[in-house]
């Protein structure tokens, strides 16, 4: 009897979801073009970034980016806390490694190349597809490569959890400073400081991209290393 109710509930919730999704998807209204026209005209002059997506999330709406780095920070802290509570139950976790020598050698040697690519995506996020978040994720995958390629005694200093914690905290602190300095120099929160100093405004976008990329990369890298049980 309980099983019949469960199946009835599941099927009815799926049909309700299908009706709601269908109502959204069969909407024939036009997509408004004002934002596209505005950023196409003003985006490069206001923020200095050719990549219009970067000009939106680092220039016009940089405050949302700050909120989202806070969400990432809290998510990583919550997951770390949960993993540590789980380890108290077993006194160290089950360790099953499916590593072969080829995997170690290949991923260890590829690690620095992936890190360089991550930095490229971070630095050039304002003129090509990419940016802080994308570069940060590639940076995190480079850290996972380095950790997978390490043997039991030899660890690259980049994948120590103390280093990644400090890098994440430092990048977040510098991001907050970059946001707040604008308030004291009469430009407003997240105002473009480079214009004050006489530099092209793209310098500020590049700085924000680098800080966001380092923060996201160290956060996600630390998260992946702890879930893979390779963090030292």
């Amino acid at each position: 009897m309980a099983k019949a109710w469960a199946i009835f509930g599941s099927v009815s919730s799926l049909t309700i979801a299908a009706v709601l999704v269908g109502a959204i998807l069969l909407d024939p209204s036009d997509w408004p073009a004002q934002i596209r026209d505005f950023t196409e005209r003003q985006g490069v002059a206001d923020t200095g970034a050719i990549n219009l997506v970067s000009s939106i999330y680092l220039g016009y709406r940089a405050y949302d980016t700050l909120g989202e780095t806070i969400v990432l920070l809290l998510g990583v802290l919550g997951t770390l806390g949960l993993v540590h509570v789980g380890e108290q139950f077993t006194g160290g976790a089950v360790r099953k490694s499916l590593r072969t020598d080829f995997l170690n050698v290949a991923s260890g040697k590829l690690g620095p190349i992936v890190l360089v690519f991550g930095f490229y995506v971070m630095f050039f996020g304002h003129v090509s597809p990419g940016g802080g978040f994308q570069g940060g994720v590639v940076f995190a995958s480079g850290l996972v490569f380095l950790a997978m390629g390490s043997r039991d005694a030899v660890y690259s200093p980049l994948v120590r959890s103390s280093f990644l914690h400090r890098l994440e905290g430092l990048a977040f602190l510098l991001l907050l400073l970059a946001a707040i300095i604008g308030v004291f120099t009469n430009v407003g929160l997240f105002g473009n400081l480079a214009r004050q100093l006489g530099l092209p405004p793209a310098y500020f976008i590049v700085l924000l991209n680098i800080l966001i990329g380092l923060k996201v990369g160290s956060s996600l890298g630390l998260l992946c290393l702890i879930l893979l049980e390779k963090a030292r």
């Binding site: 934002i35 596209r36 950023t39 219009l52 999330y57 949302d64 980016t65 940016g131």
Partner: peptide
């Protein structure tokens, strides 16, 4: 194309 939805879904 419209860059605003792409910036929103990044978050």
């Amino acid at each position: 194309v419209d860059p605003l939805p792409q910036a929103l879904v990044l978050t």
